[in-house]
Design a protein around this nucleic acid. Sequence first.
DNA 1: GTCTATAGATAGATAGAC
DNA 2: GTCTATCTATCTATAGAC
Lengths: 186, 186
Amino acid sequence: MARPQAPRGHGRRRVIDAAVELFAEHGVRGTSLQMIADHLGVTKAAVYYQFHAKEDIVLAVLEEALEEMAAFVTAAESESSPDAAATAALRGLVDLMVSHRKAVAALMRDPEVERIMAAHADLESLVRRLATLLLGPSPDLRRRIAVSVVGAGVAQAGIDPLLADVDDESLRAELLRLAPAMLARS
Amino acid sequence: MARPQAPRGHGRRRVIDAAVELFAEHGVRGTSLQMIADHLGVTKAAVYYQFHAKEDIVLAVLEEALEEMAAFVTAAESESSPDAAATAALRGLVDLMVSHRKAVAALMRDPEVERIMAAHADLESLVRRLATLLLGPSPDLRRRIAVSVVGAGVAQAGIDPLLADVDDESLRAELLRLAPAMLARS
DNA sequence: GTCTATAGATAGATAGAC
DNA sequence: GTCTATCTATCTATAGAC
């Protein structure tokens, strides 16, 4: 092993994992690079070696989460009917939220994350594509509200501390039952 | 400039209003006292005259929002059946979220707000009472997840920038239709 | 690759003049 | 009640030794 130190050359991975955990608890602005460094048992300068700026860490966390979203959004877009596309998108969303509960807690509705996303058109357009799929071809008010409620609800269920004891499979099963029913009646 | 300040005697009100607006956009930690002061056209020291600490501003915003919640929670608790209580609580929640959309955006899931609330038992217990009402006497997994989804969904609908064009009355009507239906099937 | 040391900016908060 | 001035702490980020 030529690798000098740390549990491998996976410095970036360790920083990202620590960041997700701390972002989820304190928010992005509430998490200093010092906190990330302390969490890893290294110094701030060591973190700056992996990421040249705090924003780059947020971007790395964000891109990792959105990579999976890009996959199911693209797949859903090639469904034959708008209804099938919306259903596929909703299933993909539930899967993503359930399998990345901590990352969702770290990223959802953090003003700093929103600011950074707004500055990166490619990330924002992906979310818009997902919204378009869920809304369907001609969204009326009822549909728009239902999409908003379902989207936030699914995300919250994955985050909610009161549901922390619920295992991923049970949560996924319930959400896959509840969410489509909510959209169907809109 | 004959007058020393705009609406005299309303210093606290003006600070609270400015804080809600800035908190909603930047989060609590992303809003400095300097930003609040600039928004009001005064200096930081002038803000500190009204509130001795930033946390006190957050508390003031929080207490104002929770005052209304205390009213409908107490009313719901005196309903005759658990079902009637849950329905009343849900209606109260929808009303609160729709009539205080900006304050909700400022407070919901801000890690700093959560920290401050956790330090004030009276504020936290109110939220717990609301959760108890919505969950009903013997909440199974399905019910717990539905409550989480509905609660977050209702809040999000009030906040969502994509629904900013929807007037309060239309939003309230749709939510009062959608939310109870979601709980009913759980 | 990790460290010490530090720069430069800004945060929250206080004292005291007017 | 609002100001100027300032304190202290902490933040992001960089430079350079090992």
